[in-house]
Structures are given as structure tokens and as C-alpha cells.
């Protein structure tokens, strides 16, 4: 099944056409991670990817980021083929990938410096970003001294510091407790609404995907294909209670679960 394209024919921010990926490993031989994904993402759209563990979601983000080359198909960003990483696409890795030799503030300030923020403005900008993710008190600690959830938030702040057009987020709230998670979801929505960034968001939580997204892309088991694209359509700005209480919510939730469970036994 093909993903829905953008209505009206405005140029998509991202266009994935027939994206496929095979890994050739030393022990497992060839592994087909992605089996041909078509997807258009509008500028400023919030799209979630859900799918079974190991189906190729991280790989798909790496391909959009330009870190890994697809073995088939193309990715265009603003109409230009993606061939390498660029500052227009920022990523929050599932594994955080913080610089262990820089403090929390150092990690964020480094991304600001790469963007050309003058040295004098960096401390204040760093403090603001750390405030956003609720980490002001640990600015001087090293990553090794943080919990998993804190590392994840530093990674988010660092990517926000890069100020990319497209935010690629790989289960960014996976390691957080329910409260922090809710808080950061709201914060992310606020940033998104304020800045008009395009977000591609990988999650295991169906609830999270429905609450945050314009569209939820349900992927099959490996090799990943698009099973179905679901549009929650809840009013913006979103309110968690209202979303959960929306009469349409249970059916949407059930539908995504049904797809995930069936898994597109290909």
C-alpha cells in the first residue's frame, strides 16, 4: 500500500520513494531491513513511525538523515536528493550518542557553535535549551553521570540547538518515566507549533503516536513496508485529556494495534 501524499500538491518536505535497505553482515548474510517504503511528509508535518521491534525504523531514520545509504529507492529533502547528513536534518539517536568528554552544557553549546551562534550568546542559549528539557541543574555533569532518561533529554536539547528544519527522533522518550514523558511531549508539541519544524518521530507507544502526530505510519515486520497511514485528526493545539476522551480515539487505537499484531505477515 502506498502512503498518502500531501494534499493540494505543495512540494513535500521529504519524499521517500521505494526506499529499501539490505544489510550484509558477516554472520547473518544479507538481511533485508526495509522492503520498499513510499512516504511524503509535508513541510511542518508531524509524522510518527510505529512498527515491531527490529522492523527497520531506526534504519529508515538513518537513511533520511543521510547517514546510511539506501540500497534502493530515493529520499528527497526539499526536492534535492539526500546523499549526506546536513544541518537541515537533525537527529536524536535511540542511543543518545552524546560526546562523553563534554559536559551536558558542553554538548549543547557545541551544537550551537557549529550553527554559528557567537560565543557570547552560547551560555544563555544553552541554559534556555536545558531549561526546556528540564535539565538546568545538571549542566556541569558528564554524560556518564546521568541516568538514561537524562541522557535522552540532553540529546534532544543538543538537536534543538542545531535548529534543523527536519527533526528525526528515534524513540526519544523511550527511557523516561510517565510524568517526564508527558511533560516533554507537551514541550515538543509547543516547540513544534512555535517553529513549524517537520518531525519524523519513531515510537513504540501507540498512545504517544496518536496524541502527537498528524499522521501515524504503521510499518510491517522486517523488511519494513507501510501497512497503513492513520490520520488521528484531533484538534490542534492538542490536549492530552481531550485526545484520550475523544470518541474517535478507541477505534484509532484499536486499529493501530490490530495492524501491529497482524504485522503484515508477508
Amino acid at each position: 500500500m502506498t502512503a498518502a501524499g500531501p494534499p493540494g500538491g505543495t512540494r513535500p518536505k521529504l519524499r521517500l520513494a521505494g526506499v529499501a535497505k539490505e544489510y550484509t553482515g558477516r554472520r547473518r548474510g544479507t538481511v533485508r531491513a526495509i522492503g520498499g517504503v513510499d512516504l511524503d511528509v509535508r513541510p511542518g508535518e508531524f509524522v510518527s513511525l510505529v512498527g515491531p521491534s527490529g522492523c527497520g525504523k531506526s534504519t529508515l531514520l538513518y537513511i533520511i538523515g543521510g547517514f546510511v545509504a539506501a540500497s534502493g529507492g530515493t529520499v528527497d529533502c526539499d526536492g534535492r536528493p539526500v546523499t549526506a547528513p546536513g544541518p537541515d536534518r537533525g537527529i536524536v539517536f535511540q542511543e543518545f550518542a552524546l560526546f562523553p568528554w563534554r559536559t551536558v552544557a558542553g554538548n549543547v553549546a557545541w551544537a550551537l557553535a557549529r550553527r554559528g551562534v557567537p560565543r557570547a550568546e552560547r551560555p544563555a542559549a544553552t541554559a534556555r535549551l536545558l531549561e526546556t528539557v528540564g535539565l538546568a541543574e545538571v549542566a556541569r555533569l558528564y554524560p556518564a553521570e546521568l541516568s538514561g532518561g537524562m541522557k535522552q533529554r540532553v540529546a534532544i536539547a543538543r538537536t534543538l540547538a542545531q535548529d534543523p528544519d527536519v527533526l528525526l527522533m528515534d524513540e526519544p522518550f523511550g527511557a523516561l518515566d510517565a510524568q517526564t514523558r508527558a511533560l516533554l511531549q507537551e514541550e515538543l508539541l509547543a516547540v513544534w507549533e512555535r517553529t513549524g519544524k517537520t518531525v519524523v518521530f519513531v515510537t513504540h507507544s501507540v498512545e504517544e503516536a496518536l496524541y502527537l502526530s498528524d499522521r501515524v505510519v504503521v510499518l510491517s515486520r522486517r523488511p519494513a513496508r507501510v501497512l497503513e497511514v492513520i490520520e488521528p485528526g484531533f484538534a490542534r493545539p492538542r490536549d492530552r485529556e481531550k485526545v484520550l476522551a475523544d470518541p474517535a480515539y478507541p477505534a484509532l487505537h484499536a486499529r493501530v494495534w490490530e495492524l501491529l499484531r497482524a504485522g503484515g505477515a508477508a
Binding site: 538513518y62 538523515g65 547517514f67 547528513p85 544541518p87 550518542a97 560526546f99 557549529r114 550553527r115 543538543r158
Partner: peptide
């Protein structure tokens, strides 16, 4: 991923 991060940051 550290090198990727640096590359994406410019």
C-alpha cells in the same frame, strides 16, 4: 553515531 552527530551539526 558520534561522527554522524557531528556531521549533521555541520
Amino acid at each position: 553515531r558520534l561522527l554522524w552527530t557531528a556531521r549533521a551539526a555541520g
